[in-house]
Structures are given as C-alpha cells and as structure tokens.
Design a protein around this nucleic acid. Structure first.
Lengths: 190, 190
DNA sequence: TCCCATATCTAGCACCGCTAGGAAATGGAG
DNA sequence: CTCCATTTCCTAGCGGTGCTAGATATGGGA
C-alpha cells in the first residue's frame, strides 16, 4: 500500500504531460495537428491511455483551456496593477488581453471558439474565468459611468474579443490594429 | 454542340443544389453533420461529383459563406433604410446584424469562424463583404465624431461580432443581451 | 453503327476518435 | 519463492472522415 502514493503522483504527472503536450502541439501546429495518436506518441504511451485520464479529445482541449483562463487572469491582474492611473489601466488591460490572444492563438481558440460547453461543466473553470472577468470589471469600474458595471464589462470584453477574432481571421487590416484598440478604449473610458 | 448550353445550365443548377444542400443541412444540424457523403446523397449523385464543382469541403463552405455575406449586406441595407434618424439607425443596424447571426448561426460560422482564408481567395466575396461593411460605415458616419470612419466602423463591427460569438458560446448571460447591445450602441453613437 | 470524349460511379487510401479484449506488470497471501 | 488477483497497458479493430485513382457508363459526331 506504500506505493500507492507514488502511483498516484506518477499518474498526475502523466495527466499534466498530456495537457502540456496538447498545448505545445496546438501552439506549434494548430489544433488540427493535435490527434490522439500524435498525443499518445508524444507522451510515449499508447492511445487508450489518454482515455483513462480524459473522457475524450474535447476534454483534453478543455483542460488546456482551463490553464489558459488562469494565465489570462494573471496577465490581466498584472497589467492593471502596474498601471499609473485608472484611465491608463483600461488601455493597459485591453492591450494585455489582446497580446495574450495574439501570442497564444491556439489556446485562445480552445478557451472561446472550440470546446464550447465542456469547460463550463467542470467546477474550476468558472473560478479562473471569473477571476479574469472580475479583473476586467474592476478595471472598467472607474469609467463605467451610470451604466450597470457587469453589463459594461461584458460589452467591453466583447469588443476585445471581436477585435481579436476578426483580426486573426483576416477581416481587419492588420496595420490599424492599435488605432482600433485605441478607439475601443476611448469609447469605453469617458 | 447544341446541347452544350443545356449541359452547362444543368451543371450550374447542380452546383447551386450542392450549396443549398450544404446550407440547409448546416442550419438544421450544424456543420459537423455536413459530410461529403451526406451531401452527395442529398443531391443524388456520387461523392466525387462534388469535387468536380469544388476543390474540397472547405470550398463548399466558402460558397455558403459567400451567400451569407450577400444576405447580411441586404439585411443591413434594409435596416438602415427604414430607420427614422441616424441615431436610431445605429441601433437598428446593430440589431439587424445580431439577429442575422442568431437566426443563421451555421452560416455566420462559415462566414467568420470557419473557412478562415478561403473566401478571400475568390473575387466576389470582397464585393459582398464590402457592401455590408460600407453599409455599416454609412450608419456609423453621422456619429463617428473626429475619429477615422473606417477605424470606428471596424471597431463597432468587432463589438457586434464579439457580442454575437461570446453569447453563443455561453460566456455571457443570455438575459442581458439587449442591455449589452444598448451599451455598445450608446458608446458608439454620441 | 461505330468511336471517342466526357461524365459518372465503384472501390479504396490514409487518416480520424474511440473501444473491446487480451497480455503484461504489480502487489499481497500462503 | 510461488501463486493468484488486480490493476495497468497495449494490440487490433470499428465505423467514420475527406479525398482520389481507375473502371464504367453515356451520348454526340462521323
């Protein structure tokens, strides 16, 4: 029975290895390249092992998304913390959000585009997602005016999300990205 | 050689049948249900026939997206035309945009989420997309203020797109949809 | 009527996510 | 140390996908 602890620890490590492999592969070659066979080869186990950790490929993507929510929240917190004033905080947090999405497109996809309902079935995703959202709300609060804070925050968030996704799909001119971001920040912080 | 005209016409009809079948199937059961085999069965031809019309499944989706861009543009035009004043026009056009996306989610996906680069390889997509964008720009013009019109339009568009996509993926509370839309319109029309 | 080009289909490839069933490793009991 | 039960893991395979090569049917022109 003494080996039980080690076994469980090794199992947890392997589970993390799966998530990391999926994450890295998705970042490097996109989610299309993330197949269960390649994932299995990456962790040097056979395919069915994946299914003893996750219900399916979607669940693996969801796990990557969970890590992403935590990362994003942290990035937003640090952006707001180092801003000199509330007005600048809005711009800095917005920039941090967009930077996150641009630097980790595959993870951003897992969080918002793919794996639509799965992450919300688990318990910890709302936690990290809520952390990020709360940070956004606190950033927006000083400039929300008379409107309901949560509603304004959601709308501002949608603006960021729209800029990110439209630009990545080539619908917006890349050159004017900063100007669009400035317009969005301006419209939401006065 | 006299049958040549009929042949060509029949071929064009079959091509349209493929697009329509793909569109209807996607609307009814989602894009996952649109397989080349089912599509072939729907038009009562064998699978390879599809590839004599389109390069691949992506090209079929792109064709559906093209129709979607035309539809969307028309909806926006009519929304603006029947608005009593410029201020209301912004709200009405925004509502029309969101309504289009909500009523034809599969087509909206084909236009903006899936088939990322393909539509832009053809010639007519920019035309219909530009029509929609131009309509959006004319709507925004009276309330753009000192900012560059195109930049403001793109940003406003991103706001709409973000609201649509985030809400459909369950990230936003459904109940507050109208209030968010009102906030967005308000921030962009004063 | 025959020929040939075109149009179309059958059959199959390589890949996908996923799973059943058997082999191998492991840990406790005698 | 041996034996057995349990857990762990892999091999093999199922039904599906997008796509294509090669064979077959079709129909107009000589």
């Amino acid at each position: 029975m003494s080996t039980h602890g080690r076994r469980e620890r090794e199992r947890a490590e392997r589970e993390q290895a799966i998530i990391t492999a999926a994450r890295d592969l998705a970042l490097a070659e996109g989610w299309d390249a993330v197949t269960t066979r390649r994932l299995a080869a990456e962790i040097e186990y056979s395919q069915p092992v994946l299914y003893s950790h996750f219900k399916g490929k979607d669940a693996i993507m969801a796990a990557v998304a969970v890590e992403g929510f935590a990362e994003l929240a942290t990035a937003l917190v640090s952006a707001r913390a180092s801003a000199p004033d509330p007005r600048q905080a809005v711009a800095d947090v917005a920039a941090a959000y967009v930077a996150f999405a641009q630097q980790r497109p595959a993870i951003y996809d897992a969080m918002f585009t793919l794996a639509v309902d799965l992450p919300f079935a688990t318990q910890d995703v709302p936690t990290d997602l809520a952390r990020g959202f709360a940070e956004l709300a606190e950033t927006v609060r000083p400039v929300a005016g008379d409107d309901d804070l949560e509603t304004v925050t959601e709308t501002f968030w949608a603006g960021l999300h729209g800029l990110v996704t439209l630009m990545r799909s080539g619908r917006l001119r890349r050159a004017d990205h900063d100007r669009r971001l400035a317009v969005l920040v301006d419209r939401f912080s006065r």
